[in-house]
Write a protein that binds this DNA or RNA. Structure first.
Length: 402
DNA sequence: TCTGGGGTCCTAGGACCC
DNA sequence: TCTGGGGTCCTAGGACCC
């Protein structure tokens, strides 16, 4: 299989290209700064001086993405804005606008599928493409097709993108990073030793900070060093599945297909508060936020035509520790009140002494609205009687707390 | 002044069933 | 009486990704 990996650069202000820019934070501040601009101005008309600077930003939030000039200063995705402001105070900060990104996302994906229909969606700005059967897909090792896609996306959206072409998804993804932004890079099987093995293990999609730390404790820093360990050693130290997988990826092997369709497993809404809240003192505020989250999830489910039967909550305490609770009910729902009731019960089962910084509501075990009807009728379950009794007991208590 | 929001997948123990 | 064994579902936590 031949795979493409394309990621799109979402900076939409041409006058900011080449400057350090971070996107993130959100909340009022940044939005207001840009809204002060003259009526009817197009994006390109906005003078560079009109954009707010990172050094003037105060508040919670992280960077969603940063331009390459900003990354030179060591700032990058998921970094706290306050920390980033120290590293690069002169960077311009832009607000996150996910609705806008989704619009562009749909457009660039549409451009791609018109050229190469076998596309896997990997989020708002990334896709995999299987171009084995695309006419002309093999010319110059895929480079010709990559150029066509790059140009088509630019024409349709004004966005640039980086593309990696390789024999499989694993290598295509790594290849896409060789020439960013707006580059194309082709990696062949024979390039494994020269181009992949020198890379740090972190570059493998699936090796995160924890796995990397453990690898480093065993003196394994590069993918080449990983490839040098034998499979048995990796299995003994990292477990059967992970060890074997590490061995495969180190040798550039990956047989995962490009998956064009998938069903969602869960939907959730969560929010970090402007300030930490306490269950007792801020009860009313928390209750209102909680209800709102339940309504949002319910809306999401209904809009997309799903129902779920596992309802859960997530808390993040001020010490950043996370607690989750969930409960599976015996019918499917997408109703805000029902979700709120079960989620309220979950909240009763979690410690609420520490201040909270985040609250989330999740609905899982999803089914399409039509499919769920058939599933819902068939099963009076063992144990459901006992659970019904438990529920009655805790429902009363729930009402008193939230 | 640290550290968003939306996801997926995996693990592991216990309940429960055959 | 010493105690199987497999399969599935539920729950909590955690790693990882975009």
């Amino acid at each position: 299989m031949d795979a493409f990996y394309a990621s799109v650069e979402l900076l939409r202000y041409p006058q900011l290209k080449g400057l350090p820019v971070v996107i993130g934070g959100g909340r009022r501040k940044v939005d207001e700064a840009i809204r002060e601009l003259p009526e009817g101005a197009t994006l390109a008309d906005i003078p560079v001086e009109a954009f707010p600077l990172l050094k003037d930003y105060a508040g919670r939030g992280v960077i969603t993405t940063a331009t390459y000039p900003a990354r030179q200063f060591g700032v990058g995705s998921a970094m706290g804005l306050m920390k980033a402001a120290k590293l690069c105070p002169q960077a311009i900060i832009l607000p996150v606008d996910f609705d806008e990104y989704r619009k562009f996302s749909r457009r660039f994906k549409q451009v791609i599928t018109e050229i190469a229909p076998v596309m896997e969606d990997r989020g708002v700005d990334e896709v995999y493409i299987d171009f084995t059967d695309v006419p002309g897909g093999q010319r110059e090792g895929g480079r010709v097709l990559a150029r066509l896609i790059q140009k088509s996306i630019l024409d349709a959206t004004g966005l640039t993108c980086s593309i990696g072409v390789a024999p499989n998804k694993l290598l295509a993804k790594m290849a896409s990073e060789f020439d960013k932004p707006n580059g194309i890079s082709v990696v062949f099987e024979d390039d494994l030793q020269s181009r992949i093995w020198p890379l740090p293990c972190r570059k493998v999609n699936g090796i995160g900070p924890k796995a990397d730390e453990k690898l480093q404790r065993h003196e394994i820093r590069t993918i080449g060093e990983l490839a040098a360990r034998d499979r048995e050693w990796l299995v003994a130290n990292f477990g059967k599945a992970t060890g074997a997988w590490m061995h495969e990826v180190a040798w550039g092997r990956d047989s995962r297909p490009v998956v064009t369709e998938s069903e969602p497993v869960s939907m959730s809404r969560e929010t970090t508060f402007d300030r930490d809240l306490q269950a007792v003192r801020d009860r009313a505020e928390l209750g209102a936020i909680f209800t709102h989250l339940c309504e949002k999830v319910a809306e999401d489910l209904q809009r997309k035509g799903y129902v779920g039967k596992t309802i859960g909550i997530k808390l993040r305490y001020d010490d950043f520790k996370i607690a989750t609770r969930d409960q599976t009910i015996d019918h499917f729902t997408a109703d805000a009140k029902a979700i709120r009731q079960i989620a309220g019960r979950c909240l009763k089962r979690v410690p609420l002494e520490r201040p909270l910084r985040l609250l989330g509501v999740r609905v899982g075990a999803l089914a399409k609205v039509g499919d769920a009807a058939a599933v819902a009728v068939d099963q009076p379950k063992a144990g459901s009687r006992r659970r019904a009794l438990d529920d009655a007991g805790s429902a009363a208590q729930t009402a008193s707390l939230f």
